[in-house]
């Protein structure tokens, strides 16, 4: 620094105080102990959608950044599972497939199932993986499981593309129920989110949960009509079976795309269960959320 001091400042030119204060419409923020009954601040979640987008994009980038075949994993997972199912359940065990070719039948079930399973696994770890951030900055914690569910849609879209190719290969043309497909996609998202909220909160508190999740996913798949059609279930147990919301989702997918028998009331039971799961999950998440930073 060889220059001489100037009257005010050297390189930086401070602007007068009034010039730079941008008008921002922001209400006062009140920090106080939170009551037990505080529900989700939906508006805040919406305001932070940019962060949600970045979280989701980050997860995808990081997931595939240093893998050799990148996003091809999104195809390989359900495709290979389908092959195995086709050999063991389709060929050897002669599991019925509601009149569709078994490989197509299995793959159609696997697409929403894989989405659900990946969301569960991802969301369970989301709190712990982001503990460094959680203990340092504030943001609505719900964005973490939410970003997993939203980000998973990319993989979902990729594997759905393969599904279209398979349908074309088998010459399957969907009928009018295909118009309801968005409803089932939404139901798959909400189901994944509801369970993810539970698991992410529980895993933040008790890290044993992440060892439970792989088992949970396995058992859950056996309890869902992924490899077999739900009409194999005796009709007196059907209502109980519908308590598994993924049963409704998967049957809905097949009905919309392959024209298998309509899931009927099963879907309503599933939707009701999902709603309860979601509300309960959100409530639970909110009530333990404030302790995350102290525990992680």
């Amino acid at each position: 620094m060889l220059s001489t001091p100037r009257a005010k400042a050297s390189s930086e030119k401070p602007t007068p105080p009034t010039a730079r204060v941008l008008p921002r419409t922001q209400t006062d923020l009140l920090i106080q102990p939170r009551g037990r009954f505080s529900f989700v601040d939906v508006r805040e979640l919406w305001d932070r959608r940019e962060l949600l987008r970045i979280f989701a994009a980050r997860d995808i980038k990081v997931r595939y950044k240093r893998t050799a075949i990148g996003a091809a994993w999104a195809i390989i997972q359900p495709l290979f599972t389908m092959l195995i199912f086709s050999i063991f359940f389709g060929r050897l065990a002669h599991v019925p497939s509601d009149g569709s070719p078994y490989p197509l039948f299995a793959y159609t079930g696997l697409v929403p199932w894989m989405y659900f399973a990946n969301a569960l696994t991802g969301a369970t770890n989301s709190m712990v993986e982001n503990s460094r951030v959680i203990t340092k900055v504030y943001f609505p914690r719900l964005l973490l499981p939410l970003s997993i569910v939203v980000g998973g849609l990319i993989d979902f879209a990729i594997s759905s593309g393969v599904l279209l190719l398979l349908m074309a290969y088998y010459g399957v043309v969907p009928h009018w129920p295909v118009l309801l497909l968005p409803v089932f996609v939404l139901l798959a998202m909400v189901t994944s989110f509801a369970v993810s909220v539970w698991l992410s909160a529980l895993n933040a508190l008790y890290q044993d949960v992440r060892y439970v999740v792989p088992f949970l996913v396995q058992f859950w798949m056996l309890a869902s009509p992924v490899a077999y059609p739900s009409n194999m279930i005796p009709s007196k147990w059907k209502a109980l079976y519908g308590l598994n919301p993924m049963a409704g989702v998967i049957e809905g997918f097949r009905w919309a795309l392959l024209g298998t028998p309509s899931p009927g009331p099963l879907i309503l039971v599933s939707a009701a269960v999902v709603l309860l799961l979601l509300l309960g999950g959100l409530y639970y998440f909110r009530s333990v959320e404030r302790t995350f930073a102290d525990i992680l």
């Binding site: 920090i31 106080q32 102990p33 939170r34 900055v137 404030r290 930073a293």
Partner: peptide, 13 residues
């Protein structure tokens, strides 16, 4: 910074 919640008292920002 709202990383943790206070147990008592409040702050307005």
């Amino acid at each position: 910074a709202r990383v943790t919640d206070p147990t008592e008292g409040r702050a307005r920002i």
